[in-house]
Design a protein around this nucleic acid. Structure first.
Lengths: 145, 145
DNA sequence: CTTGCATTGTTGCACCTGCAATGAAATAAT
DNA sequence: ATTATTTCATTGCAGGTGCAACAATGCAAG
């Protein structure tokens, strides 16, 4: 009987997770690009610099879930735009020191409220379901790393 | 005091959602590529053809959350690999009729158990949290479309 | 009929991405 | 000290992606 086992892509958890993330990311990226002219990788670098001060590429790679080449290119774009500086770490000259410029700090100050508002929108849309979603994401992110 | 409002990227919902989805997708894509030589877009097309029989590119675009160009290219690769055929719909010659070949059906029969096993792994890792995650994804997918 | 408009699928283009190779610097081994 | 090994960041390359432009077809208006 079961020659063709029932399968509906829309009930398939990996697909659903990816579809939801893609839509959210797309909407988010559009807003960032239009209002601030930055991409999501650039935003992640900025956010981490805001959060942790001077860091290296490797630092960001470890904490922000991005390949080092992606970090490197995002950092180069941010440097070209004047939002960060790249300097050589004097104690270990293999390392870079990425640092926000005043313009970068000002940009972060403008982006942060938009990011928080976006997250608030998501939470509103989710209502009480947000807790379950967070718990599920925790489980996936903890175990899988 | 609040010159620099606290912000931790790892508590930021859009980031967490995307990070989780990326890791899952990556693991999934690796397995598909190694075992079957197909990508996720190709898998989605195959899955929809398995589920719905003959369909057009536009059909898949609407139901599988992919741009038409992405569908078109995935379909071309699948055709080149001999897994589907592309024919012109005789009643509306703008439309294509995508159809699984016997090889395509055989491939789907091999992929489906792997997909189900992967989903089962996710469910195991999540345990009872899977319900909350599903509910949250529902909310995001329903409202956002 | 024909003329204009909408729809379907493909493709050119510019961009982004991951991976591997590379160069530079630090560390370990002998 | 010299040599090998490891670490860090960048870059070349091949391939995937979205978007806009396009050709082909269908449909509607006159």
């Amino acid at each position: 009987m079961t020659d063709t086992p029932d399968f509906d892509l829309n009930d398939f958890l990996p697909y659903r997770l990816n579809a939801a993330a893609s839509r959210i990311s797309r909407a988010f990226a559009d807003r960032y690009r239009e209002e601030f002219g930055i991409s999501i990788p650039e935003w992640r670098v900025l956010a981490h610099l805001h959060q942790s001060g001077d860091v290296s590429v490797r630092d960001i790679e470890a904490r922000v879930d991005m390949e080092k080449s992606k970090v490197s290119r995002a950092a180069s774009r941010l440097e070209a735009s004047g939002y960060i500086t790249k300097a050589v770490n004097t104690v270990d000259r293999r390392l870079l020191v990425l640092r926000l410029t005043p313009e970068g700090k000002a940009l972060v100050a403008r982006v942060l409220p938009v990011a928080m508002a976006f997250q608030a929108e998501m939470r509103t849309r989710l209502g009480p379901l947000v807790e379950g979603l967070e718990a599920g994401l925790n489980a996936l992110l903890d175990t899988k790393s």
